[in-house]
Design a protein around this nucleic acid. Structure first.
Length: 473
DNA sequence: ATGTCC
């Protein structure tokens, strides 16, 4: 693989072999994987072979190895030119994403004496861990179907939140085009009991404080000011999304031969967007996306009740955005508007100021881009910028440098926990191993990822958030 | 990420 340094923050993987477009990796020298045959870089090149891909196979600064596509990968295909959709370009956790809440009147100093009570309240009320039941036991399949069709909007309609919440959600909290007929019985079974639960792995709910503001005017428009108390929720579509991915990958593997598609890795299973199998996946994926959005809405409400009871404050939604999703968007490519299927897998949509899909009150500042770091360091809020080169996308996190296995090896959960608490971060975990796997050292330097994101022209810094308490599966 | 292989 030939890698060319084009700028201090952009590397090009030269087009060769079956690649239809080059690979573009936004990374500093420090973030670029060292080995030329690195698994994640190989995946960037593999994605560049997909039928209908335009411009480039992109990688965000937090790129690491994933299923088929790298995590931190962005790929757009032209749906009018045989472009494909690939579940590997979305990820198993369909519509996994981040929601940020902020208190309009409570700062971290005022919270401090009540923090322990808040964390205990969250510990008691946030369902989490593998396979756990959620806070909204749905009575039957019909009720779940309404969640899959209506997303966060349906949850709010049922009293789980207020209409203003939806104004600050990507797509108003619901994607059109969900097709419940393409969601298998097994996926429905898994989804029925888990709605309103956090999950495990890197999913978390954190109480945070604004530690630094880079652009006061923009931060103020997002409701953020120095010292403000925030809550960041990172979760997705749980077992339902996972099952949908499994089901449709299997179906596509069987179908792709009929479309004459060959891929360098069977994990890149894909079919034309405009095919029965493609449309089936799109319908199921949108259903899972709505489930993920409803899930974050429900956890928002639980969090609000805890803060009302123990900290006497309400919480407003700053923004809610998915970072595992394929979306249908129009972008100019070679000077012409094209209908694209934009896969973002571990990549956050990052809309520029003036974009019609922004909430009206944020139209002139750009989309809030929510990028969690680690539980020991910090997280960031950025804003979308004009002329984003990667189809309006940015990084989604710090990015792993150690595998889960490597991270857990030699790490004692109690030692980690007391280390974090010495740093002023209260920990409410469920699994000792799960906590160890998420230690800050398992991740890249989030400050470096953010700096690179900004220098690469993907988004600009608005505020840095530090953790005060973390709820983990 | 995930009832980490029905």
């Amino acid at each position: 693989m030939k890698i060319i340094e084009e700028t201090p923050y952009r590397f090009r993987i030269a087009k060769e072999g079956a690649m239809r477009v080059p690979g573009i990796v936004y990374a500093s020298k420090a973030l670029l994987p060292e080995e030329r045959d690195d698994m994640a870089l190989t995946q960037v090149a593999n994605v560049a072979t997909l039928p209908g891909i335009v411009r480039a196979s992109f990688a965000m600064p937090d790129i690491h190895w994933g299923y088929g596509f790298p995590i931190g990968g962005v790929a757009a295909t032209d749906i009018d030119d045989g472009g494909v959709i690939s579940p590997g370009g979305v990820g198993f956790d369909i519509s996994c994403g981040v929601r940020l809440l902020v208190s309009p009147d409570l700062d971290s100093t005022q919270l401090q004496p009540r923090l322990r009570a808040v964390m205990d309240g969250l510990d008691n009320r946030i369902p989490r861990g593998l396979g756990r039941k959620g806070v909204w036991p749905l009575p039957n399949r019909a009720a779940l179907e309404r969640v899959l069709a209506g997303g966060a909007r349906y949850a709010v309609g049922k009293g789980h939140g207020v209409p203003e919440d939806l104004e600050r959600c990507e797509d108003g909290g619901v994607l059109e085009g969900a097709d419940v007929a393409e969601v298998s019985a097994r996926a429905m079974e898994r989804g029925l009991e888990q709605i309103g639960s956090l999950g495990s792995g890197n999913h978390f709910l954190e109480v945070q404080a604004v530690d630094r503001v880079y652009d006061e005017a923009t931060a103020a428009r997002m409701g953020l000011a120095d010292g403000a108390v925030c809550v960041m929720i990172h979760t997705g579509s749980r077992g339902l999304g996972h099952q949908i991915c499994t089901d449709h990958v299997r179906r596509m593997e069987a179908a792709m031969k009929r479309y004459g598609i060959t891929v360098p890795d069977r994990q890149l299973a894909c079919v034309p967007v405009r095919s029965p199998e493609g449309q089936a996946y799109v319908g199921a994926m949108n259903a899972a996306a709505n489930y993920g959005r409803a899930n974050r809405q429900l956890l928002t409400e639980v969090t609000r009740r805890v803060f009302e009871a123990h900290a006497d404050t309400s919480l407003r939604v700053v923004y809610d955005v998915s970072h595992n999703l394929a979306k249908f968007e129009t972008h100019d490519v070679d000077g012409k508007p094209r209908n694209l299927c934009v896969h973002r897998k571990g990549a956050t949509r990052s809309l520029p100021p003036g974009h019609p899909d922004l909430p009206a009150d944020l139209a002139d500042v750009g989309q809030p881009v929510l990028i969690p770091g680690t539980m020991g360091t910090g997280s960031y809020v950025l804003a979308g910028v004009p002329d984003n080169p990667a189809f309006d996308s940015a990084a989604h996190g710090a990015g792993r440098v150690q595998s889960r296995h490597a991270a857990a090896r030699g790490e004692d959960a109690d030692v980690l926990r007391s280390r974090l608490e010495k740093h002023g971060v209260l920990v409410r975990g469920r699994s000792r191993r799960g906590l160890a796997e998420e230690k800050p050292e398992a991740y890249k330097d989030v400050d470096e990822v953010i700096e690179t994101t900004e220098q690469a022209g993907l988004a600009r810094k608005v505020a840095r958030l530090i953790p005060l308490g973390v709820v983990k599966g």
